[in-house]
């Protein structure tokens, strides 16, 4: 555990908490892509299956359980409790276009051809693109509430901080995982345009509004 990794994990946790609080306090999930949230739930479930097989640390296990639970709670709020506020019409990204390539890629490029390893690899690939339906939703509506922007910023920062963590680990421990690094780079690149808008607009108190 190094400072970049810890900061990344905390940023990830913060993102999830911001999202849950936003939905709970406003009693609405307007502007949030249910499809991205479904993809994240799949990511957590397929990656954290190792809760049952491998013990790494108490920290690790607790974080995994929190991510799965928070993801489930988010889906419950979006698809059950505040279903009426869910922005169906704008959330029209076809997730099979992400799921199918990720399954195929995980079957071809993986560290080991075992069920657990392929599921882990699939979850890494899927996570890298899981935000696309959300970014698509923002681009369709042309704007995002500030709180949604904070959520996206925290969520994007998490993988960017992991990139620093991987550089650190490569130098300090000669540890590296090319699959995680490649997917992490892709994931971070997808947020770059948003990061730019966040820094130039949201931090200056303006609403995140895309040029018409």
């Amino acid at each position: 555990m190094n400072i970049f990794r810890l900061a990344g994990d905390l940023s990830h946790l913060l993102a999830i908490i911001i999202l849950l609080l936003k939905i709970w306090k406003t009693r609405s999930c307007a502007g949030i892509s249910g499809k991205s949230q479904v993809l994240f739930a799949i990511v957590y479930l397929t990656r954290y299956l190792d809760l049952f097989t491998t013990y790494i640390s108490l920290y690790n296990s607790i974080m995994k359980i929190v991510f799965i639970a928070a993801s489930g709670a988010t889906l419950y709020l979006m698809y059950v409790k505040f279903k009426a506020t869910y922005d169906h019409n704008h959330d029209s990204f076809r997730i099979e276009f992400l799921l199918i390539p990720c399954v195929i890629l995980a079957l071809i490029i993986n560290h080991d051809f075992t069920v657990m390893e392929i599921l882990w690899t699939f979850s890494i690939y899927l996570e890298s693109v899981a935000i696309l339906p959300q970014l698509f939703l923002v681009s369709k509506t042309g704007e995002a509430e500030s709180i949604t922007s904070h959520y996206l910023f925290a969520l994007g920062s998490y993988r960017a901080l992991y990139l620093l963590n991987w550089i650190y680990r490569y130098m300090a421990e000669s540890h590296y995982d090319l699959i995680a690094i490649f997917a992490g780079v892709v994931q971070t690149i997808l947020y770059c345009d948003f990061f730019y808008l966040y820094i130039t607009k949201v931090l200056k108190g303006k609403k995140l509004q895309l040029p018409a």
């Binding site: 994990d9 190792d50 790494i56 991510f67 882990w120 000669s174 995982d177 090319l178 995680a180």
Partner: peptide, 10 residues
Amino acid sequence: SPSHSGHDEL
């Protein structure tokens, strides 16, 4: 070496 004998990250 690339570790695939247990992923220790989240």
